[in-house]
Nucleic acid binder design. Structure first.
Lengths: 209, 209, 209, 209
DNA sequence: AATGAATGAGAGTTCATTCAT
DNA sequence: TATGAATGAACTCTCATTCAT
């Protein structure tokens, strides 16, 4: 899909407001006002509020799928290094698109729209397949142990990141970091997460003879 | 708070519907109809839809706080065993009150109601304090290593469980367990989670001299 | 159906406005304003604008069905006299419920709502059956000739009356009766129609040996 | 008025959709889409939706006026024959332009647009004048009786035809003619109507010494 | 103590039309 | 001459809440 400037503006605004107030808690008028466009434009461009959400999901899904694919094509590095790159890539992605991932988290709870259910399902499936292939490769090369549960591995990865996302404010307060700038704080958190998850992954994956 | 039978009925129905359709996606009429009470009753008993949500949170928070306290009072078992009990207790609690934890997850994203923000914050604080005390004790007894990040530990615990909660359906499909009864499936998942998280905790905590 | 005073008020107002501006040309706000009730009340009482229309049709259909039945039960008068009574009854009914019959005429053209299509169909069917029975009786008694086309007979009856309804204003102007009061004018028209249609019916029905 | 091909296309499409869904039930977008033209074209060509309707009426009115005039100019046939020709001409016209006459019927009920009110009025006036002249001629030639009510005569003619138009589907069902092709069915109906109305007209007009 | 009736506010969507091109 | 983009206004309907009883 190629979106015009105004359409992109609407999508971005919607993403922000949906992540702040939820889908049902955001009115198309809110979005239109914030995006500086006419209310009718949302129906005009996207058909409906629901389809706006779908377009939003579709756009991000495409981005993410592309990222994952490009990452796994690099054949020069070993399985463990690749897994660590994958971890960092996940962390980076979620932290950069916080709003979208917040929306996705809620949408997984409130499953209504079949289009979005399918998009999330496809995304998950693609992720699992990619990681599965990587693990198989690592096992063949005797770098990863046998009997690895892919789903639990992904669970751990995504669970840790999203949980961090949900408790960022709490982290700030707990570590008394209220006064440092946001981007610096985010960098610290990403670093912390990276070290932590990589440690867990090594524990789960590394071959112990 | 002591609730009458009808009030409890409303709270339970609200919890179900909020977890299915979200707060904004559930109308007081939906709740009243499903609970078999008059629409005006909700305002009459709880003041407003918002306050109904608060009451719902309050009730569950109290339950959870009580559980945690009682768990940590047992002084007969060692720190690692206690930590493992804590893990199982968390898993059990989340799986049993799935609906509430789904609501809580969404409410952490859509932060609007200050009362609920405070309740969630208090709950988190209490959890952290309890675990902190437990870790300190373990470190003193040289069972746990030094330099343990409590927040990351909790993150991992809660992240893994809630992520499992969000992807239960996906698990079922992936492992082709669509035909086994729900309670049996839940038991399997709890067992899987238990082993997995305990393994992670040992990796994160155990003292390596 | 038993309607409250306010519901009746809404129905009557709706009937007036629908007959003046059509269904699509009348907004629920128009009806609410004119009836002196809140806009939300129409949805509250009738469910939707569409169902308000259905209720309106249903009410009148019931009335008309009852009238026809009671008319045909009188067994003391002969077939031709009964037919003439029927003609007068039709004229009276249409002239008295002009608004409803105007709506019905338009609804027969713009056939969309299946509920109303069915109501009109049932009404027509009942009418045809009643008249058919009357004609059969008259033929047995050698008062009516054979080979009477019931549908054409009804067509003539209803066609003449509704056409008169559509051109009342034109009649007034043509006969320069703009200055006489409405009810007096209506009486004249009814009288005119009565004589005219009875004459036609005699021509169509009377037995010529 | 001389219309371009596209304008004619719009007019024809509008006529169809207005007859199916009414004026207010048809959007200019519906017309534009169905006609395969740009939405803005309708305003561009006709000024507004209202004026499109007026153009549509104007076009048909001109046609009809021309037809009537040409019919009455033929001086070779007698009054009764002429009247019968007139009847057939009416039937033919209405059946051929069903869509327009359906619209006109509704517009006579929902009188709002003064331009259309005037067009319908003029049409009616012209009709009455023509028939009046014909009757006068027939009375002079002692073919028609005295004291003929022109308006009632026209009422009967138009009433019977339009009522038939409204109940065509019902006729089909009642006479179990659902399986014969449409044009054949229309022919049957026209024939039926022709015989019926001519019979009525003879009863109303023929001189009885 | 409990409720049916009622309502103002706001929801998403469609509308006929305009305007720059 | 013809049109895609855009919009203010109005649409129907649902909402949480209130109030008289």
């Amino acid at each position: 899909m190629n979106y015009s400037e105004k359409q992109t503006q609407i999508l971005t605004t919607a993403e922000l407001l949906f992540s702040l107030n939820g889908f049902d808690g955001t009115s198309v008028r809110d979005i239109a006002d914030e995006a500086g466009v006419n209310v009718a434009m949302i129906s005009y461009y996207f058909g409906s509020k629901e389809k706006l959400m779908e377009a939003l999901f579709s756009r991000r899904s495409d981005d993410i799928n592309m990222q994952i694919e490009s990452l796994l094509q690099n054949e020069e590095i070993g399985p463990m290094q690749k897994m660590e790159d994958l971890v960092d890539s996940y962390i980076e992605r979620v932290m950069q698109k916080q709003q979208f991932f917040k929306i996705m988290m809620c949408e997984q709870v409130i499953n209504k729209n079949p289009v979005i259910v399918k998009l999330i399902g496809d995304l998950k499936k693609k992720n699992v397949e990619s990681i599965n292939k990587l693990i198989k490769d690592g096992q063949q090369k005797k770098v990863f142990r046998k009997n690895v549960d892919v789903l639990l591995l992904m669970n751990t990865l995504i669970g840790c990141i999203t949980q961090m996302l949900l408790t960022l404010d709490y982290y700030k307060e707990f570590n008394e970091l209220q006064n440092i700038p946001d981007d610096q704080f985010f960098e610290q958190m990403k670093q912390k997460l990276s070290v932590h998850i990589k440690f867990l992954f090594k524990a789960l994956l590394s071959y112990e003879a």
